[in-house]
Amino acid sequence: MARSINDIMNSMLSVKDSYTELSGLSGSISSIWRKILYIVASAIWILENLFDSHQQEVTGIIATMRPHSLRWYAEMARKFQYGFNLLPDSEDFDNDGKTGDEIEASKIVAYAAVDKVEGKLLVKVAKDAGDSLTPLEDVEKQAFTEYMERVQDAGDDLEIRSEPADNLRLSLDIYYNPLVLNADGQRLDGASLTPIPDAVHNYLKNLPFNGELVLAFLTDALQAVSGVVIPHIVSAEYQYGEIVWKPVGVKYKPYAGYLTVAETDLKINYIPQSEIMK
């Protein structure tokens, strides 16, 4: 950042004072040597400002030419403001005259993730509905798609996806400790009537958006429930849109970016089991 002329002048005066052989120079502000220093300081000030302008110009060119990352696309998706227009030739929204609350309320995309699939950039987004995630409505998706097409890098092919949650269907065998749980999987001390279903729902809720369902990790979550001796996933299947149920192998990345399991799709068989010494 360019210094002021006075700062440059003071810097040169400080250097001048370090030379004892120059101590005899007149201290008058109208002296010739001071005028020469001022002229040099002015020239340095002009040069530093030119350097600043050049740096800004080069930085702007680099920012314009550099291909953006997948993370950048996800950040831009979350910056979308529904019902707001972009400033001319800008990636920023025109928030003139809007309150902070109005601006925040317009940012309807709470979750976003971007994958590169077969040369395309797949942009998955969802809204926050409190205890669950929901897709954008048709008119919201149309506006969001227009926004992303305006801010995207030239040549990138985007596919916007905002869909209802993928459905998960589970069949579990839970070998339980009869001293802790009853035959319906309820805690005997009354602390919870649904500890196993709660563990499943909490695992899905805590998955990162567009994160993978890993059956081994779900097993770990079930194993951590008090009273569970052996958790066994008999089967796991997923379904979305019009496709039929398909089995989950080792892991599964949801089509919509997130998963839900209905009460009727969670089958649990409780089997009493004494604790096993390890």
Rank of each mutant, 00 (worst) to 15 (best):
I29K: 14
I29M: 13
W33L: 05
K35M: 13
I36S: 14
L37H: 00
L37N: 00
V40I: 15
A41S: 14
S42Q: 13
A43S: 05
S53Y: 05
E57V: 04
V58A: 12
I61F: 01
I61L: 01
W72S: 00
Y73E: 04
Y73I: 01
E75A: 01
A77L: 03
R78S: 07
Q81G: 03
Y82N: 07
L87F: 11
L87M: 05
L87T: 01
P88W: 15
E91C: 07
D92V: 04
D92Q: 05
F93S: 04
D96R: 12
K98G: 03
K98C: 06
K98D: 01
G100T: 11
I103L: 04
E104D: 15
E104T: 15
E104P: 10
S106R: 08
Y111T: 04
A113T: 09
D115S: 02
G119P: 07
K120H: 02
K124W: 01
A126C: 09
A129L: 12
G130V: 11
D131V: 12
S132P: 09
L136A: 09
E137F: 04
V139H: 04
V139D: 06
E140D: 05
A143G: 07
F144K: 02
E146A: 12
Y147Q: 09
Y147G: 08
M148K: 03
V151D: 05
